[in-house]
Design a binder for these strands. Sequence first.
DNA 1: GGCATTATCCCCCCTCTGGGGGATTTATAA
DNA 2: TTATAAATCCCCCAGAGGGGGGATAATGCC
Lengths: 220, 220
Amino acid sequence: MKPKTKIIIVDDHAIILEGLKSLIELDDSLTVAGEASSSMECLKLLPAILPKLVLLDLKMPGIDGIEATRLIKQRYPNIKVILLTNYDDEEYVIESIKAGADGYVLKDVKKGDLLKIIHTVLKGRAFIDPAVTKKIFYNLKNSSNLVSEHKGRHSLTERELEILSNLAEGKSNKEIAQTIHLSLETVKSHLKNIYQKFNVHNRAQAIKIALQEEIVHFSR
Amino acid sequence: MKPKTKIIIVDDHAIILEGLKSLIELDDSLTVAGEASSSMECLKLLPAILPKLVLLDLKMPGIDGIEATRLIKQRYPNIKVILLTNYDDEEYVIESIKAGADGYVLKDVKKGDLLKIIHTVLKGRAFIDPAVTKKIFYNLKNSSNLVSEHKGRHSLTERELEILSNLAEGKSNKEIAQTIHLSLETVKSHLKNIYQKFNVHNRAQAIKIALQEEIVHFSR
DNA sequence: GGCATTATCCCCCCTCTGGGGGATTTATAA
DNA sequence: TTATAAATCCCCCAGAGGGGGGATAATGCC
């Protein structure tokens, strides 16, 4: 009897974890060798289990699936990664592929299909949910290389981060200038740059993005 | 040996259906007597199975969970209904309760907790996820005078809440006015009142408070 | 009937903000 | 050496935003 192919599954929802497990165990050639409810947990399991494939939820608190994919592929390029998601947003798909994911599957996948997809990926071929490929092709046609540049990791400088966190406190430009001992104009300059990097046009939107992407945090 | 308590589970995602089933079957006193991937399917199963409880996904194509709850309770008032959802939106909670749901549970519920909740509901007690009760209490303050007034405790009106959530989206006054079909001046008026109730002086601070006190939420 | 609340809209005033130009210094990478 | 990027500061200007007054109609409460 052949040894079963080891898979690690990662999702912050226990229900989905259960579902994936019982789905995968339907296939005699596969086994769930590990379960994790966060990317961090998953990364810790890797060296001990050394699975052939990791099934990752895309959206999770803390390190998300895309970032986790990047980290996994950095250390274990041979481990296959499939991202599971609710979002057919082309932004995520492209980021996922860049991060090195071998599969991108919507959560409304049918029972048997997921197993087929797993085997496809294990054979070394990539799989992207047909439901999302349409959108990608459409967008690639319309905006040649804009997409890759557009949302490609807005990396803020130290100063910009400092100003951003002050911004999220609800401070005015003048107050920010005073607290970090800068000229008003300097603060404005930095803000202009931040807005450009975020592709927004006012402080409220910037705050929203900063909090959503966990670039800055509340003091709770 | 006692007969097991029959449960029907309904979700349009096969993975979640699997997860719920294997979760529920962990409990010896319960059994999944039926599975449906839509409300319509579920309604057809009811007369044949006559379960004690139905676990319904809130968001489904076609008839959603709330509407399905209403239909189920109309014909079978004794069947318990628990709604499963990703959304801690108070709108849905209140609608669900009005529709007659006995439970309202977020999908990130822990393994064992779901079983406890099922038993709680089977005993005739209602269960609402603690994560959402905060918002409900907040809004009940507006309708009933039991807890209200006293000190500067800001209780916002419906309109103000609506504007606040738009504010937190990063919209400008003009955009808010357009989306909810109001005059710019009206929006400004409401904002003035919100600022007073929050005791702040600009939108950024208002957003911060709204998010911190969980009056409005991100879409995560 | 009065009273309070809410929701709607209007005016004025002035500050703040966002976006468009810059410039200079310093450090770092090519 | 020469770019390149980051951080600092400056000017200008239109328009958005905040704070102060209102007004009117609808509702519900005592």
